[in-house]
């Protein structure tokens, strides 16, 4: 445990000085700032913020995570020649990556909100859920990134797979579902559509946020079905549980690969 904290500490030292993390934080700052400038309605700001966040966080977490792992290869060999357990190192590298990414998002987004506190009336519960959604997107796509990187020695192949998995979850999957719903529209397919949206972490995070808004019915088919089937609170709990599963499973497959493989 002590060793784990030390690994994380030096990872944080490293990444907090990384120009990419600084750029990432600045991006969220500018995004949130400009949305507030052009829009006075807080819930609209939140919806726009959510739509960008659910594209950008998975993208950056998978690509940056994969590159970070490949760039750390020699460092991993160095660390493994020290008296350190493999799983401890993996855990340390993972938290050392996911934590600064998640903090970048929260800090970058929060600063303009703090400046605009006077104009905001309510909606903070939605904001909290947006942060929770962003946090889950970060840890889920970082574990997917590490999973891909531990499975592929070839950096180019790994990066390609990382890009593809982001594209699959953020665009291809939704397109396929729409297509399926179109074909099967004469049948009762509510249950299927619920299960299908649980199989996509980005959809789950979107559900989590829009269930907090009063407009879930307007936010697409699965939102409405979810609302109808589970109501807001059960729906929220179910989507959080599924998000946890999404973070834990790739992480554990990754840690198992990491413990077995040759360096």
């Amino acid at each position: 445990m002590k060793i784990l904290l030390k690994i994380i500490k030096y990872q944080l030292h490293d990444l907090s000085r990384s120009k990419w993390i600084i750029i990432y934080t600045t991006f969220f700052f500018l995004l949130s700032y400009s949305l507030f400038t052009f829009n006075k309605d807080f819930s609209r700001v939140l919806i726009s913020l959510m739509n960008v966040v659910l594209i950008i966080i998975p993208l950056v977490s998978t690509i940056f995570g994969t590159i970070h792992y490949y760039n750390s290869k020699e460092y991993i060999v160095f660390m493994l020649s020290q008296p350190i357990k493999r799983s401890t190192l993996f855990f340390g590298l993972y938290i050392g990556l996911a934590l600064p990414l998640a903090l970048s998002f929260v800090v970058g987004t929060s600063i303009p909100i703090l400046f605009n506190l006077g104009n905001i009336h309510g909606g903070f519960d939605v904001l909290i859920f947006l942060f929770i959604a962003g946090f889950f997107q970060t840890i889920i796509f970082c574990s997917i990134a590490f999973l891909i990187a531990t499975l592929n020695e070839n950096k180019m192949l790994g990066l390609g797979l990382a890009t593809f998995s982001w594209l699959a979850f953020s665009a291809i999957y939704d397109a396929l579902i729409l297509f399926l719903l179109q074909i099967l529209q004469d049948y009762p397919i509510e249950k299927i559509s619920i299960i299908l949206s649980m199989l996509n972490p980005i959809d789950l995070a979107r559900l989590l946020v829009i269930l907090k808004l009063d407009i879930s019915a307007l936010m697409g088919y699965t939102g409405a079905v979810f609302q109808k089937f589970f109501g807001s609170s059960l729906g929220t709990i179910l989507s959080i549980l599924s998000l946890i599963v999404w973070a834990v499973i790739p992480f554990f497959i990754g840690i198992r690969n990491f413990s077995k493989k040759d360096f």
Partner: peptide, 18 residues
């Protein structure tokens, strides 16, 4: 057991910003 071992690898690389 690696406490008793010092290892110099072929290629050295450490985190860039440390």
């Amino acid at each position: 057991y690696r406490k008793e071992i010092g290892y110099v690898s072929q290629i050295a690389n450490f985190p860039d910003n440390l």
